[in-house]
Simulated scan of single mutants.
Amino acid sequence: MPKAKVDREQAEVRGRRAETIAAWWLRLQGWRILARRVRIVGGEVDLIARRGRTVAFVEVKQRRSEQTAAWALDEYRLRRVAVAAERLASRFARTGDIVRIDAIFIVPRTLPRHLPNVWHG
C-alpha cells in the first residue's frame, strides 16, 4: 500500500479518536451530541452539540501541542465549518437558540480545551 494512503488512513483513525474524546468531554460538561461528522457541499462539521438553548458546531483539532492545534485552526477551516453551520442550522437549532462555532483542542497528556465562539466572520 502506498505510504500516502497509509498516512491518510492513520490520520483518519486519529481524527475519529479525537472526535470521540471531544464528544465525551462535551457530554461531561452537560452537552448533548446531536451529530458527528456532518458533511455537506462547501463544508463539514466534526460535532454538533446542544446545551440548553445553545447549539454549537464544533471543530476538533488533535495535535502534539496546543500551539500546533491553534495553528491548524485557520480561517479556511473555520470558514468551512461556518458554511456548514449556516446550511445546517435550520435542521438542528430552534427559534431563539444561540448558534455558535466552537473548537476543541485534543493534546496528549492534557485535558481537552474547549474554546467557545471562535468564529466571528
Results as ranks from 00 to 15, higher is better:
residue 34 L to Y: 08
residue 2 P to L: 08
residue 113 R to M: 10
residue 8 R to W: 13
residue 47 L to Q: 01
residue 52 G to K: 13
residue 28 L to N: 11
residue 89 A to K: 07
residue 121 G to T: 00
residue 16 R to E: 06
residue 101 I to W: 00
residue 43 G to M: 03
residue 59 E to N: 14
residue 92 F to I: 09
residue 33 I to R: 07
residue 3 K to M: 14
residue 3 K to T: 14
residue 80 R to V: 07
residue 70 A to N: 03
residue 73 L to A: 15
residue 97 D to H: 06
residue 81 V to F: 04
residue 95 T to P: 04
residue 76 Y to C: 13
residue 10 Q to K: 14
residue 53 R to D: 08
residue 55 V to G: 04
residue 110 T to A: 09
residue 81 V to Y: 02
residue 84 A to F: 10
residue 107 V to I: 14
residue 52 G to D: 15
residue 42 G to I: 05
residue 30 G to C: 02
residue 60 V to R: 01
residue 44 E to C: 11
residue 62 Q to N: 10
residue 22 A to V: 01
residue 114 H to C: 12
residue 15 G to N: 07
residue 90 S to R: 12
residue 46 D to Y: 04
residue 116 P to W: 06
residue 89 A to L: 05
residue 1 M to A: 15
residue 79 R to C: 06
residue 116 P to Q: 11
residue 100 R to P: 00
residue 58 V to H: 05
residue 61 K to F: 03
residue 93 A to F: 05
residue 109 R to C: 12
residue 41 V to A: 15
residue 27 R to F: 08
residue 65 S to H: 05
residue 6 V to F: 13
residue 6 V to T: 13
residue 24 W to R: 08
residue 61 K to V: 05
residue 120 H to F: 12
residue 52 G to Q: 14
residue 51 R to W: 09
residue 47 L to K: 00
residue 118 V to T: 06
residue 106 I to A: 03
residue 103 A to E: 10
residue 72 A to T: 02
residue 100 R to E: 14
residue 31 W to S: 00
residue 117 N to T: 09
residue 7 D to L: 12
residue 15 G to F: 05
residue 76 Y to H: 15
residue 76 Y to K: 03
residue 28 L to D: 04
residue 82 A to E: 07
residue 23 A to W: 06
residue 114 H to A: 10
residue 69 A to L: 06
residue 40 I to Q: 03
residue 72 A to H: 02
residue 102 D to Q: 11
residue 91 R to F: 03
residue 32 R to D: 09
residue 74 D to P: 03
residue 114 H to I: 01
residue 84 A to C: 10
residue 28 L to I: 02
residue 41 V to F: 15
residue 53 R to T: 05
residue 94 R to A: 14
residue 48 I to G: 01
residue 98 I to P: 05
residue 8 R to V: 13
residue 78 L to G: 04
residue 24 W to S: 08
residue 104 I to H: 01
residue 67 Q to D: 12
residue 7 D to F: 15
residue 108 P to D: 11
residue 61 K to H: 04
residue 41 V to M: 11
residue 63 R to V: 10
residue 86 E to V: 08
residue 83 V to R: 02
residue 97 D to T: 13
residue 53 R to I: 01
residue 93 A to T: 04
residue 21 I to Y: 00
residue 113 R to C: 06
residue 72 A to C: 09
residue 37 R to P: 06
residue 11 A to I: 07
residue 46 D to V: 02
residue 105 F to G: 00
residue 96 G to S: 05
residue 58 V to Q: 04
residue 38 V to N: 03
residue 36 R to D: 07
residue 93 A to C: 14
residue 121 G to I: 02
residue 56 A to Q: 01
residue 109 R to H: 10
residue 64 R to T: 11
residue 71 W to I: 09
residue 42 G to D: 13
residue 86 E to C: 14
residue 43 G to R: 00
residue 27 R to E: 11
residue 37 R to N: 09
residue 22 A to E: 02
residue 92 F to M: 08
residue 89 A to F: 06
residue 34 L to N: 04
residue 41 V to E: 10
residue 108 P to A: 08
residue 83 V to Y: 04
residue 23 A to M: 02
residue 69 A to R: 00
residue 7 D to R: 13
residue 9 E to G: 06
residue 36 R to Q: 12
residue 43 G to I: 02
residue 55 V to W: 02
residue 94 R to N: 12
residue 11 A to M: 14
residue 31 W to Q: 02
residue 62 Q to H: 09
residue 107 V to S: 02
residue 24 W to G: 08
residue 23 A to G: 13
residue 17 R to F: 13
residue 48 I to H: 02
residue 54 T to A: 14
residue 53 R to G: 05
residue 76 Y to P: 01
residue 93 A to P: 01
residue 95 T to E: 07
residue 52 G to N: 15
